[in-house]
Design a binder for these strands. Sequence first.
DNA 1: AAAAAAT
Length: 698
Amino acid sequence: MSHVAVENAHGLEQQLAVLDLSAADGQGGGTNRRYIPPHLRNKDASKNAGNAFAAGRQGVYTMAPPGNYGWDGGRNNFVNGYHDNRMTGNSFNRGPPRMERGRGGIGGGGYRGNRGGSFNPINPAQPMGFGGYDNKDAGGWNTNKDAYSSFGNNRGKSAFFNDRGNANRGRFDHGGFGGGGGGGNSRWVEESRDDGDWSKPTPRNERLEHELFSGSNTGINFEKYDDIPVEATGQNCPHHIESFQDVDMGEIIMGNISLSRYTRPTPVQKYAIPIVKSKRDLMACAQTGSGKTAAFLLPILSQIYTDGPGEALNAVKASGQENGKYGRRKQYPISLVLAPTRELALQIYDEARKFSYRSRVRPCVVYGGADIGQQIRDLERGCHLLVATPGRLVDMMERGKIGLDYCNYLVLDEADRMLDMGFEPQIRRIVEQDTMPHKGIRQTMMFSATFPKEIQILARDFLEEYIFLAVGRVGSTSENITQKVVWVEESDKRSFLLDLLSATGKDSLTLVFVETKKGADALEDFLYREGYACTSIHGDRSQRDREEALNQFRSGKCPILVATAVAARGLDISNVKHVINFDLPSDIEEYVHRIGRTGRVGNLGLATSFFNDKNGNITKDLLDILVEAKQEVPSWLESLAYEHQHKSSNRGRSKRFSGGFGARDYRQTAAGASTGGFGGRGGRNQTGHGGTRGFGGG
DNA sequence: AAAAAAT
């Protein structure tokens, strides 16, 4: 037995929580692009442009017309006159006043000229992250007005960082920036955004507001989730809240909550928000879709608004000065969010854009598969909150583009999945072998669907005196989802699928899971030939295609999405009526994740799985899940499971896997544990040996 | 065995 000294202080070991309710996540932006089937792709570019936003994102059309910015230049010029005053109001000792200008500030023409790179047609490979020139800049060009109107209030507040981050951080008292940038240089553009009182909202921008918030009408009845069990354990655990008003998150956050039409917190938010606000570390077992993105973004951003940029601001400026060149500043994000997949990173980033609306915080996202030069330019325009996949972030750090010296908030999202995907070295490199503040100084939040041994070790290493939050698994096992398992031979799958699809309403979204990338392409082609508006997502498709496929699906333009495992977890695709496991996965956890894409409150979800003799390995676990969820169990499945159990002693695991306990063993435990509901497993909750349980000899 | 992710 590998007895790693894990302090499983809270005695929770198992997977919990497929809590599928948000629909609030990741719906930002009004991207409705028309679906182009693979056959027709790249043949007629104009068809790709569904609307103005899509055009901008794809770089097919010119970006927003210059006229949109004209009004702003004048205003910024006006406001800029006050900058020097405000600067002295700050307690930073930064030397002489600088030529500061807001985005689109003095001389709109020069501004645009300088920014051509970020501003021109966007690299199509990264439409969501970087097509948002106007989105992100909008925050910038607005920053000055309210700063002006609130001038004199709370001056100097931003000079104080939160008390966790303050210890032993070097000071950067670099004055003398005057003239360094040269006329029209955008190097200083960010500073007008950074200076001033971060807790005060910047002016409205209706166009941005519309883009950020119009797409996210949830229509979800959150009250139904009140009985979802949440358990918080740990020393001096802050009391949970019942409404967003119960904790003071400041006017920017409250405004954005209301714009997002979040009426009340989801269970994970009720608990996580006060925990994070009171500067505690957090280990939370909850799924994406439970509202956990907002659960960490809201309190982190709120805290950043309260505390201001602190030393990070000076560090960025110092870096700019050292390099002495335009656009070469190293960025020191105040908060870092790590996520396993590109889509999830984008989703979090989109949420961050909502909650940083009318603030001085500029969120950025970096991930692989997209042009790194573009991402670097985006970073150089300012980055206070960074969402990243681990590999690309390490790359950025090694290129000297990102410094984590002042990263006071660290979030590991879907931590179990990141480990599954082999990111542990990169994660440790980022967290432990670089300049990141130590645990106890920074504030760290880990989210994971499961709590196996590996995650416990990570929690031990990264977290200090943490609160453990277990969010009950509802979603997949609730009566919201009708789970059907049908016996379908391989050769019959396609025609069976057609039958299912023809029985489905045109308006409902259907998610079809297959096991291989090739299979996904083939099935998409098949369905297309059969006249269905469908698209696909898998790891061999370009990043751009993946994002486009998701948007097409979400918007309902293509109500059928053929997907591999890339879409099973993390992604919040709301309103999926029907999940079809064209190919069943080989492990039950994957199954739980997949069917968790459907069954929102108020919408009954349906999950249909095609089962045949290739799926022996999942028989027992599938049976357990069906029984737990009080679903109809086909008699053939029951007898198969019985046979299987007697063939193999490994918990119904097929012989193929019996030699392979390695990284997988905890998952199996987790899957076993997951077959019980949250409330019914009190006994297990108290066992303290994590994922090693039952597999020590393996 | 597949998929995902830095190039």
